[in-house]
Simulated scan of single mutants.
Amino acid sequence: MGILDRFKSNKTAQDKARKMSDAAEQKANERTGNKYESQVDSGQQQLHERLGMDEERPEQP
């Protein structure tokens, strides 16, 4: 069992990674004045998909 397989089955680690990812997204948007918001969001979604955390989330305003 590889490290990504263990990560995908560990809900606690996924929750922590999601919080860190959201914080990074927020910080990137703050530092760029939301100029690249769509690109940052797209990158975050790709990260979640590749780590097996891709679940439907409600759109944020």
Rank of each mutant, 00 (worst) to 15 (best):
M1R: 14
G2Q: 09
I3K: 13
I3H: 11
I3T: 09
I3C: 11
L4K: 11
L4T: 10
L4Y: 07
D5N: 14
R6N: 11
R6L: 11
R6I: 07
R6E: 12
F7N: 07
F7E: 09
F7I: 04
K8L: 08
K8E: 14
S9R: 15
N10L: 09
N10I: 10
N10V: 03
K11C: 02
K11P: 06
K11F: 10
K11D: 12
K11N: 08
T12H: 12
T12Q: 14
T12P: 02
T12V: 13
A13M: 05
Q14D: 01
Q14P: 01
Q14F: 02
D15R: 12
K16W: 08
K16R: 14
K16L: 15
K16I: 13
A17D: 00
A17G: 03
R18N: 05
R18A: 11
K19R: 14
M20E: 10
M20H: 08
S21T: 10
S21E: 12
S21N: 11
D22P: 00
D22V: 06
D22L: 10
A23R: 05
A23P: 01
A23C: 04
A24K: 06
A24P: 02
Q26G: 01
Q26R: 15
Q26C: 02
Q26N: 15
Q26W: 10
K27G: 00
A28Y: 08
A28E: 05
A28P: 03
A28Q: 10
A28N: 10
N29Q: 12
N29M: 15
N29P: 05
E30S: 14
R31G: 07
R31W: 15
R31L: 15
T32N: 13
T32A: 12
T32F: 12
T32C: 15
G33C: 08
G33E: 08
N34Q: 10
N34R: 11
N34S: 11
N34D: 11
N34H: 13
K35T: 11
E37T: 14
E37W: 00
E37K: 10
E37Q: 08
E37D: 04
S38V: 05
S38F: 05
S38P: 02
S38M: 07
Q39V: 09
Q39N: 11
D41F: 00
D41P: 01
D41S: 12
S42V: 00
S42L: 05
S42H: 10
G43D: 07
G43T: 01
Q44D: 12
Q44L: 10
Q45S: 11
Q46A: 14
Q46C: 01
Q46K: 14
L47S: 07
H48T: 05
H48Y: 14
E49Y: 12
E49N: 07
R50H: 13
L51C: 06
G52M: 03
G52V: 05
M53P: 03
M53R: 04
D54V: 03
D54Q: 13
D54L: 08
D54I: 02
E55I: 03
E55R: 09
E55D: 14
E56I: 06
E56K: 00
R57G: 00
R57D: 06
R57N: 10
R57S: 02
P58K: 07
P58R: 04
P58H: 00
P58V: 03
E59Y: 04
E59A: 12
E59D: 07
E59M: 05
E59V: 01
Q60I: 03
Q60T: 03
Q60W: 01
Q60M: 07
Q60E: 09
Q60K: 04
Q60P: 00
Q60F: 03
P61K: 12
